[in-house]
Amino acid sequence: MSASTAVRKPRQRVGDRVFSNLTRLAGLAILVALAAVAIFLTLQGLPAFSAPSDKLGGAANLATYVLPLVFGTLLAAVLALLIATPLALGVALVISHYAPPRLARPLGYLVDLLAAVPSVVYGLWGLAFVSVRLTPAYAWLEQHLGWIPLFGGPASTTGRTILTASIVLAIMVMPIITAITREIFLQTPTLNEEAALALGATRWEMIRLAVLPYARSGIVSAVMLGLGRALGETMAVAMVLSASGVVTFDLISNTNPSTIAANIALKFPDSTGVAVNALVASGLVLFVITFVVNFAARWVVARSERTQA
């Protein structure tokens, strides 16, 4: 034993070297893949700039082709988040701070399970169930709240509207936001929670004083991750939405904006030549939007962490 304690030259072990090279390789692979995708999208998208209008679904040029799709993509995603965020935060709080442990655990598993359901299944459910059930609601909205442009109508008779698509999207992104925020809520320092309780805070007041401020930056990143998923979601939207590619804030009518991802999925099989290039160009735009959203999220989180420090 004593002999082995003699000072040895610091020598890198083989295992360390192999592992460090493997991680470096993995890191590089991600960058290469990302660059390859960007280059492919750019090269294949370029020809679409000179595409004739008949290859662009009737649009005069690439910009008027892509912009309505960008509008639809953002509208559906933002609507989905507006619905999903309060719901997700509520469920996360129930799991982390309200439900007794015996109930909280299965509830948590259930939410995680929702996140694992394939989007085709959500699409089917949205198509065959949600849209049908919502049709009377849309008729009611048009009749009673029709003066609000959002519900101008005429109400869709199939229910396959942008609002239905957004609701299905909301249910898809909700588990992601719930899972992340739940973990953050659970990490609130006991010290801060007890500070609030000792002042005579009710449970909800304690959550407002201690839990939510602590979780602020985490909530932002969770919502941004949800936004990323909502922007890129393809199958569910393609199946649910009866899209005509218009630009409108009317959420319940038969003529709906389409999204970039759904448009690609629906048009690609029948497209040839420069029409394919146009689809790729729209893909590039989606790629950029997702990138910008991610960086914006990081920036927001970093800034709120700095002001807290």
Binding site: L191, A195, A210
Partner: peptide, 9 residues
């Protein structure tokens, strides 16, 4: 409390 616990934000 034992450890000072002002609300951090």
């Amino acid at each position: 409390f034992q450890r000072p616990n002002p609300f951090p934000t």
